[in-house]
Simulated assay, not measured.
Amino acid sequence: MGHLDSPKSVTGVTLDKTTLSLKAGANATLTASVTPTDAKDKTGKSTITVTE
């Protein structure tokens, strides 16, 4: 039987933008990249609250 590697955990998350300016009611999409790229579970959820 071959050697099985343990599943890799996510060790970091990077967004495609470091700053973002929006007007009230506007929308934007941020794309996240995880490291390592071969991590087993890349799912996640994020909520951002903006105050005026």
Rank of each mutant, 00 (worst) to 15 (best):
T47V: 13
L22K: 12
A39I: 00
T29L: 11
L4V: 12
V34D: 01
D38L: 08
D41E: 10
G2Y: 09
T19P: 01
V34S: 04
T14I: 07
D16W: 05
V50A: 09
V10M: 11
K42G: 12
V50N: 05
K42N: 11
D41H: 03
D41C: 03
A32Y: 15
L30C: 10
P7W: 05
D5V: 11
V34K: 00
K8D: 13
A26W: 01
L15D: 12
L22C: 04
T37M: 01
A32D: 06
D41Y: 04
V10T: 02
S9K: 12
S21K: 14
G25F: 01
L4K: 11
D5Q: 12
I48T: 10
E52W: 00
E52D: 13
P7N: 05
D5L: 14
L22G: 02
L20P: 04
D38F: 08
S6I: 13
K40P: 03
G44T: 03
P36L: 04
S46W: 01
G2S: 09
V34M: 07
T18Q: 11
A39N: 00
A32T: 11
T35A: 15
T29R: 06
V13C: 09
T14R: 09
S33K: 11
N27P: 06
V10P: 00
L15T: 13
G2C: 06
G12K: 15
K23C: 07
P7M: 07
D38E: 02
T43F: 02
N27H: 06
A32N: 10
T14V: 10
L20E: 07
A28K: 05
T35R: 08
A39D: 00
D41F: 08
P7D: 06
S21C: 05
S9I: 15
T29H: 03
G12R: 10
T18Y: 04
L20Y: 02
K45M: 10
L20W: 01
I48S: 01
M1S: 07
D5E: 10
V50T: 12
E52M: 04
G12S: 15
K17H: 14
G12Q: 12
T18L: 10
I48H: 01
D38I: 05
V13L: 13
A26S: 14
A24I: 05
T51L: 04
P7F: 03
G44I: 03
L4A: 13
A26Q: 15
A26P: 02
V50C: 06
T49Y: 00
D16P: 03
D16I: 03
G25C: 03
L20C: 12
T31L: 05
G2W: 02
T29W: 04
T35E: 14
N27Q: 09
V34N: 00
P7R: 01
V50S: 03
A24E: 07
S33C: 11
T47N: 15
T37E: 04
T35V: 15
D5T: 08
G2D: 09
S21M: 02
T19G: 00
K17E: 15
N27C: 08
L30A: 13
S6G: 09
V34G: 02
T18I: 06
T29Y: 06
A28F: 06
T35W: 05
A26C: 05
S33F: 12
L15C: 10
L20N: 09
T49L: 00
L15S: 12
G2M: 07
S6E: 10
A28V: 04
E52K: 09
P36F: 04
T19F: 02
H3G: 09
D41W: 03
V34W: 02
D38Y: 06
T51M: 03
